[in-house]
Design a protein around this nucleic acid. Sequence first.
DNA 1: ATAAGCCCGGTACCATGGTACAGGGTCAAG
DNA 2: CTTGACCCTGTACCATGGTACCGGGCTTAT
Lengths: 151, 151
Amino acid sequence: MQTATLTTGQLARAAGVGRETIRFYERQGLIAAPPRGESGYRRYPPETVVRLLFIRRAKQLGFSLAEIRELLSLQQSPNATCSDIRGRAAAKVADIEARIRDLERMRAALSALVNACSGRGPASRCPIMEALTGQEAAALTAARNDATEEK
Amino acid sequence: MQTATLTTGQLARAAGVGRETIRFYERQGLIAAPPRGESGYRRYPPETVVRLLFIRRAKQLGFSLAEIRELLSLQQSPNATCSDIRGRAAAKVADIEARIRDLERMRAALSALVNACSGRGPASRCPIMEALTGQEAAALTAARNDATEEK
DNA sequence: ATAAGCCCGGTACCATGGTACAGGGTCAAG
DNA sequence: CTTGACCCTGTACCATGGTACCGGGCTTAT
């Protein structure tokens, strides 16, 4: 085995990802299809490890694979500017902030319900369930009671 | 058409969801399969609207369809207690808070990178890209330079 | 009575990020 | 020279929450 190139398994171990993941990234255009040996085995140049680690870090920062593909192609392109990158990163920050606000809104609404619930009594009269059920249930029940009385 | 029951389309309009979504929820066990008319058409009792609105609200609060199915079955079950419900809601709050913390961590790391980037110069020397690329790239480049010099 | 509009079951498809085979070929050590 | 570990392609599958289409049947208004 030549130490100059890596097989798929060696690359996977070096980058801390699965072997299948590497082939998946190749299909997704995140890493280039490497040259092949006689046997058809992939022979990765060692810098592919760097690229895979880049992908891992970008994923941890919340970038999708599509966005990472764009970042990588900007990296490659000679007339891409630093402010292009900065713009994408800032947009992603805004995106993350929007998701946080969304979750904060949920958290506030749901924890208000939890606080409104004593935890005693049957589920059927739980304030949480009543809030989720809304007004319509009462209206429908009333309508049905009317019908019963009229009968 | 009897006004006592609703067709799938009427139910969909009343609850503000798609017709296909209702059949999907039936397959997922979120709403019971309703009785059918002569023609095989579904005939929903009007309270199904309440159930669909319940599902919508619970979804807005971050519950998955599987969790909503559980909430609905607790609602139905006579020996389920209020504290069962409260427990699920509290667990969901904790879940949402964990997701928020995760996003906060991303936001902090990424906005630090955005602040470190002046936005001037080529993408190849962008501090954001350098941070994502890490140390390995420098090490590999050095190794390659060594090899070149030795040759 | 005919056309529009609704409904039926079944199936396939969307995005996201992979994972898991099956059925072969290859490579290195013993 | 065989055995086990590795690699190949291709395809199907996982969860999530639906959406879209097909070929047919039903209903309703004109």
